[in-house]
């Protein structure tokens, strides 16, 4: 994961990521072998950190306990940081275990950010672990994780 060569660099999925994929829940159910696995997630995390194992601290992933739909899961990530000097989060990457590809999003902060926090909505085809990894300016990495349980709606669309 390279650092943000602005403006608007293109993201090209690697071949392996394309093959490993299968996003879309239907595809997920048909081809469970195409899911990102825990190992894939670990690989993606190590790719983000350049091989450094992140320390489990300072990063919080917040997802509501009760989830009615995997199509849009409110997700909040935040890092305890003064956002000054070396205690500064340059980027924060979100990973998941069971979607077809382990990467979800990478947030990039700046001196104007004020806080290392972001909220978004993500797709989750299944109950799984979500991990966030913070990259600090001093080259250290921190991580936090949450286990998420997704239930399916009662009514399924037939068309």
């Amino acid at each position: 994961m390279t650092q943000n060569p602005s403006p608007l660099p293109s993201y090209t999925p690697t071949r392996r990521q394309m093959i490993a994929a299968g996003t879309g829940f239907a595809a997920l159910m048909l081809a469970p072998s195409a899911q990102a696995t825990t190992q894939e997630m670990e690989k993606a995390i190590l790719a983000f950190t350049g091989g450094v194992k992140p320390r489990e601290s300072r990063v919080t992933v917040d997802i509501p306990v009760l989830l009615e739909s995997g199509a849009s899961v409110p997700t909040k990530v935040s890092v305890e940081s003064a956002m000054q000097g070396d205690d500064f989060v340059t980027s924060l990457a979100l990973f998941n275990e069971k979607n077809p590809q382990p990467n979800v999003a990478v947030f990039h902060f700046s001196a104007r950010s004020g806080q290392a926090t972001a909220q978004t909505r993500i797709r989750l085809g299944d109950s799984q672990k979500i991990v966030a990894v913070a990259k600090m300016r001093d080259g250290s990495y921190y991580m936090g994780a949450i286990e998420v349980i997704v239930t399916l709606p009662a009514c399924a669309e037939d068309a």
Binding site: N4, S6, A71, P100, V106, T120
Partner: peptide, 15 residues
């Protein structure tokens, strides 16, 4: 003109 925030998005982001 100065970047405040940026995000790279992947297919696991919601519609």
């Amino acid at each position: 003109g100065e970047q405040v925030f940026a995000c790279d998005l992947f297919p696991a982001m919601s519609a």
